[in-house]
């Protein structure tokens, strides 16, 4: 290739280079200035000190990382992992059979069913969360319904269950879509072959369908886990401020405690967890 380049006159290569420059430089400049530089600022803040009344004092310290190891903050990170994992698991349990059922519909109904899955996503995110206050609160509809059949009232709102419900409601479509794409791509002949060879439907599912849809499962889990893990709006609206997730902690460091360096350190921890998950996903997808 290099010899070919040398052999050719310089101008097409320069033209090519010019083309690359014209197309790539505006977007890349934007990405460098508004993505890489801000991320570098977050990163660099982790080793600086908090100003007494907020802001950043540019003196080196490892204190932020020491604080991150504090059981208090590790506990919040762990709790957020648990809530996000629980949400993801339930989303998978509901999402898989749903995606499976959609994939078996006729083409016309498939489109309608998929649009119906995505449609709630189009109303405002915060309004969707708010709807659950009306459903779950003490005098709310679920409790009224329960009372009608002589049950309750239950404490449904302002706890972790309400947070998981809200996260699940907000991100379930993100689980169903990649799962559907994976299941849809399956060759129905594989299932038939398995059945013809005498495998029970369950065995077919376990040995054929499931392994082949692992990439879809992994993407779906990631799509639900990532926004759940870093969320701060849902814990605030549905959790009654009684439990906080790492997103709340980061928000509070920036907007309340005015401790930007520590807030940045927490954000770095968030990115680190997500990177580990991304790598795990890539690894598992390759094995599958």
């Amino acid at each position: 290739m290099t010899s070919e380049l040398k052999a050719r006159p310089a101008s097409p290569s320069r033209g090519r280079r010019l083309g690359a420059f014209v197309f790539l430089s505006p977007g890349l400049t934007y990405l460098v200035v508004l993505l890489l530089v801000p991320l570098a600022l977050v990163l660099s803040n982790t080793v600086f000190q908090r100003g007494r009344f907020g802001g950043v004092v540019y003196e080196f310290t490892t204190e932020n990382f020491a604080r991150l190891m504090d059981p208090l903050y590790l506990g919040v990170v762990g709790g957020s992992l648990r809530i996000a994992a629980l949400t993801t698991a339930i989303a998978l349990l509901i999402g898989y059979p749903t995606a499976y059922a959609i994939a078996r519909l006729s083409p016309r109904w498939k489109t309608i069913a998929l649009v119906a899955i995505v449609l709630p996503f189009w109303t405002n995110f915060i309004i969707r969360v708010y709807a659950w206050i009306i459903l779950l609160s003490g005098p709310g509809l679920v409790n009224s319904g329960m009372a009608a059949i002589g049950l309750g009232p239950y404490e449904l709102l302002y706890n972790q269950g309400a947070i998981v419900t809200g996260l699940l409601y907000s991100y379930l479509p993100l689980m169903v879509l990649p799962l559907y794409a994976a299941i849809e791509r399956l060759d129905p002949q594989l299932r038939e072959a398995s059945a013809n060879l005498g495998a029970s439907p369950f065995t077919t599912f376990r040995k054929v369908t499931l392994p082949l849809t692992v990439p879809g499962v992994l993407s779906g889990c990631l799509f639900v886990f990532v926004p759940s893990f870093g969320n701060f709006v849902i814990p605030e609206i549905l959790g009654g401020n009684k439990s906080i997730m790492v997103g709340n902690l980061i928000r509070d460091q920036f907007l309340k405690a005015r401790d930007w360096p520590f807030g940045s350190t927490l954000a770095l921890a968030l990115i680190a967890v997500l990177l580990v998950l991304l790598m795990a996903q890539a690894w598992m997808a390759r094995r599958a």
Binding site: L34, L35, V37, P38, L39, L41, V42, N45, G230, F232, G247, I250, R251, F254, W260, G263, S264, A267, L270, I271
Partner: peptide, 10 residues
């Protein structure tokens, strides 16, 4: 959230 704080800092 990460984008938001990065941009705020920037």
């Amino acid at each position: 959230l990460v984008l938001a704080i990065g941009l705020l800092l920037f």
